[in-house]
Design a protein around this nucleic acid. Structure first.
Lengths: 224, 224
DNA sequence: GTAATTAATGACCATCAGTCATTCAATTTA
DNA sequence: TAAATTGAATGACTGATGGTCATTAATTAC
């Protein structure tokens, strides 16, 4: 009796098709400007059908966004599992995030539309939870790497890895958001290259959190 | 012939009344959840009248927000003009911003709802320009202060004041947004006090941008 | 007192997220 | 094979909301 299983597969397939359509529309228009009719038309389905597979527009949005979170997880995972030295790993971490920003800009953007809290109303508990789990996994991964660097005496032992991670992440993300939205403004009004500012910001912070040993090893790496 | 002038005053007064009403509603509900009918009811006017005084909901929003920007300008202005030593000024700068965040949380929030670029569509050119001017004035003020600290050999001479300002501002703001939105999450999931993280982040950055002299003077100040 | 100007109104329009009674095709039963 | 059952898909509809405009009311000018 493979009929039931075939139907399940078809249903899953349709779910993915809808998600692909939603992704195209959200990438192009952003959350607010995208309409469910747009997505329905792109998916070549009626609007009502979308609601058989996803509870709300916001659920669809977050589900697309989770694809982006998974990509980021994979990128960090690569850094963690690559057979690098701990110092190499430490220097690869910001590179990996910058890479993600440059190569998956659409996902990066999606991950930061949802800062306004009032919009979380429409998100189903399941999706909220899935998001939370993925988020936690990413942070655990980063924390693990930073802890290793502390153990190896590359980062100061008096610092908490989670605090360090949050500081590095937040400052990098804040500048990336400016690069994404305001690059022209800063170039024209202040003759500032925001990519350089991001590099400087990272450099200053790493200088401040590294041990002497860590600074030396990172410098040695950047010279090769 | 004072009639015309009286009418002008009344019109200006009404404009302010509408803005007060809008402020109350935006503070309570945020941009998305606030409706023009809410604002009209709060102002005890019909919705149509609002549009005689403001071109759009977004215009109203930004005009309220500019009150908050002015307050921030005033706070920084106070720091710049207070008869402090340059070192005192430097230490007061992050304090002033943190103060603003704590005491004018509603305005702080408003200033960060508008990250999504697609919503700027509805903003009139006049309001956009006014915002830009205020923004520029704030940055000029901060840059001036940082330049003074560089001249006084408190901050490293190889750094650009605008770059330093942007780095300090962005990282502080990013953490404040997390405090505002996610404080509970971080406390529960990672036993992290975000206020402490903010302090640490500032400490690390100041350590990295100060000269030896600057570090000593700031340390002397914090011990008194 | 009458005409002209200005302020205010609220019914109305268009858009859009989400719903649901109905349709239609595939599957099962007899 | 024919009838009955299931459930996927539909699209007209609802309610909410930003914005408009013809009409009304009030004030000023002559």
């Amino acid at each position: 009796m493979g009929i039931h299983e075939r139907k399940e597969r078809e249903k899953e397939h349709r779910r993915e098709d809808i998600l692909d359509a939603a992704q195209r529309v959200f990438f192009e228009k952003g959350l607010a400007a995208a309409t469910m009719d747009d997505i329905a038309e792109t998916a070549e389905l009626s609007k009502g059908t979308l609601y058989l597979y996803y509870k709300s527009k916001e659920d669809l949005y977050l589900t697309v966004m989770m694809r982006g979170m998974q990509l980021l997880y994979d990128a960090f995972s690569e850094v963690a599992k690559g057979a690098y030295s701990p110092a190499k790993m430490l220097s690869r971490l910001p590179e990996a995030y910058l890479n993600y920003f440059n190569n998956h800009r659409d996902y990066f953007r999606m991950m930061h539309y949802l800062q306004a809290p009032q919009f979380h109303k429409q998100v189903s508990d399941e999706v909220k939870q899935s998001c939370g789990v993925l988020n936690q996994r990413i942070w655990d991964l980063v924390n693990g790497m930073l802890q290793r660097c502390i153990d190896e005496d590359l980062l100061r032992k008096d610092l908490d890895p989670t605090e360090v991670g949050l500081i590095l992440w937040s400052s990098a993300t804040a500048l990336m958001l400016r690069i994404d939205n305001e690059e022209g403004i800063w170039r024209e009004a202040f003759q500032l290259n925001l990519h350089d500012v991001l590099k400087l910001s990272n450099g200053l912070l790493f200088d401040a959190i590294c041990t002497e040993k860590g600074r030396l090893e990172l410098k040695a790496l950047s010279n090769t």
